[in-house]
């Protein structure tokens, strides 16, 4: 079953006097439960793709069907509900609320998603049992990213979107985060879409989508993806 379907999606940005076509007539289908890596050089349009999937932005044309509904036509409030229910985010720079504690950062999801998972249980799973009452600035980068993974999972979403989740981390920590992300996704049976320019991450993916100049160049299914430990970092 396809959880995500993009049909003829284009996104045009108005930048001063010229138009920039960030995405040009893109079609893509993603099956539920898969681990998808969107690969491409910077400026290729991969972040735009992720933003559209995440409901952070609306396409200029085309349909984006997530879980059977076309989110391309959603209003701002409907998009907010969509973001609250269907997708979890993990960002390169974590984007935690600095004035809330680790626990509160995850628990705040309860306010918008009534069936959110228990924050403490999630934090235990990501290995932050001792850090409930710390503020984000008191944690290392890797720890902060764990919080953000816990936050993304807390909504119990269909899809988890990650934008360069290891981009700000050293490689060792990055590997640990990826391991965590994958094992969590498997445990909870989530679809994961990672946007990156790191070729190594792609080796682990079920599906690798290559993007260049606003268009999808190739979609490769990998029958035997490597495990995190098999990848030569």
């Amino acid at each position: 079953m396809n959880i995500v379907e993009l049909k003829n999606v284009s996104k045009v940005y108005q930048s001063g006097e010229h138009e920039v076509k960030a995405l040009n007539d893109v079609n893509l289908e993603i099956e539920q439960g898969k681990f998808v890596v969107i690969l491409g050089p910077s400026g290729a349009g991969k972040s735009t793709l992720l933003n559209l999937l995440g409901g952070l932005d609306s396409p200029s044309s085309g349909t984006i069907i997530v879980d059977g509904k076309d989110i391309a036509t959603y209003s701002a409030d409907e998009l907010a509900e969509y973001r609250a229910d269907k997708v979890g985010f993990v960002f390169q720079f974590y984007n935690l609320v600095p004035t809330l504690t680790v626990y509160e950062n995850v628990a705040l999801i309860k306010e918008i998603a009534p069936d959110a998972l228990d924050a403490k249980e999630l934090l235990n799973k990501v290995g932050l049992a001792d850090h409930y009452n710390k503020f984000p600035v008191q944690l290392s980068g890797g720890e902060q990213q764990r919080v953000s993974i816990a936050r993304a999972l807390a909504k119990n979403p269909e899809v988890i979107l990650c934008d360069e989740p290891t981009g700000a981390l050293d490689s060792e920590t990055g590997v640990m985060i990826l391991k965590l992300l994958l094992s969590m996704a498997r445990d909870y049976n989530k679809t994961i879409i990672i946007v990156t320019h790191n070729q190594n991450i792609a080796k682990m993916a079920d599906v690798v989508v290559k993007v260049k100049n606003g268009q999808i160049v190739s979609v490769d299914e990998q029958k035997k993806p490597l495990t995190v430990d098999e990848v030569d970092w």
């Binding site: 995440g54 701002a76 409030d77 907010a80 509900e81 973001r83 609250a84 004035t99 918008i112």
Partner: peptide
């Protein structure tokens, strides 16, 4: 601004 943006991304509505 950043915090507000994060909240918005996570799924908070403008009104909230």
């Amino acid at each position: 601004y950043r915090e507000l943006a994060t909240l918005k991304v996570v799924g908070f509505k403008d009104k909230q």
